[in-house]
Amino acid sequence: MTRLNLSLVILAVLAFAASLLAGRVWLPPSALLDVIHQPDSLAATIVSDIRLPRTVLALIVGAVLGLSGAVLQGFTRNPLAEPALLGVSSGAALGAVIAIYFGLAALSPVTGPLMGMAGALAACGLTFALGRNGTVALVLAGAAVSSLTAAGIALALNFAPNPYAAYEIMSWLLGSLADKSWTQVLLVLPFVIVGCALLAMTGRALDALSLGEAQAQSLGVNLFRLTVLVVAGTALSVGAVTSVVGAIGFIGLVAPHLVRPIVGYSPRRVLLPSALAGAVLLLCSDIAARLVHTNPELRLGVFTSLLGTPFFFWLVVRIRRRAP
């Protein structure tokens, strides 16, 4: 258990360092020292001003997606649950698109994240309100909410005042960590910290919930409080990061599955390793997306979708095989 966390932390540190050095311009490892010794050199500027914020953001986004995926899978007891499947990511995307569309994003940089969180909160609340009676209902509710938000986004694209606005919305939707600065990191960090703290408090209740709702309640779990923690925590953390980097799918789905067998399937023990695995996955995906030399660049959200979809298929086949 702790050995797993340690390995994941080492992997994250390696991926973090690689992310600072890799890219169109490869830097030698000594460039990392230049940041301290020669802060004015070109290598130091590339690292500290361009790659470091991007890497830190990748770490944050990956950890948020991994943690929220683990919490949502534990909460719904559904191995397919993740922020995107339950409509949370698309809710956040719609919120952010509204901010872009009406020019609210230009008023103040914090408008984007706030609208993203509001959208995520509305979508998450609606999904859980509609899908209260079991996991199938929940997944269907997630699909319904996703359709609703997709319709909203399509409407915004339809009536986009000019092709550039439509392009801006479209390219933002694809999800990317490119051209992100410390401003964005500092913008999302407070919301991410509060959201993740709320999600981290759900561990015990998620464990008890593996016995079903009746037994969990009998063991003293307050289901209402738990739902509030899950909805608010997911909306704050996923809403904030989605509004900044766009929709990035499948990290939240894959990360919990990778670590679950190693920790013995206990939902609480999945949380921390899943956050770490999410961070490693997203850092590696971002490095890979950068190394594929295409013009225009391969978007991170597209890359994770391409990698994640086969995994989704495998999961569906496995669930179908296990079902009676």
């Binding site: 007891r77 919930l209 593996s210 016995l211 079903g212 009746a214 037994q215 009998s218 013995g264 399937y265 206990s266 939902p267």
Partner: peptide, 10 residues
């Protein structure tokens, strides 16, 4: 409860 279930293979 009657027919208790377990959702994860712990």
């Amino acid at each position: 409860p009657q027919n208790p279930r377990l959702e994860w293979p712990i």
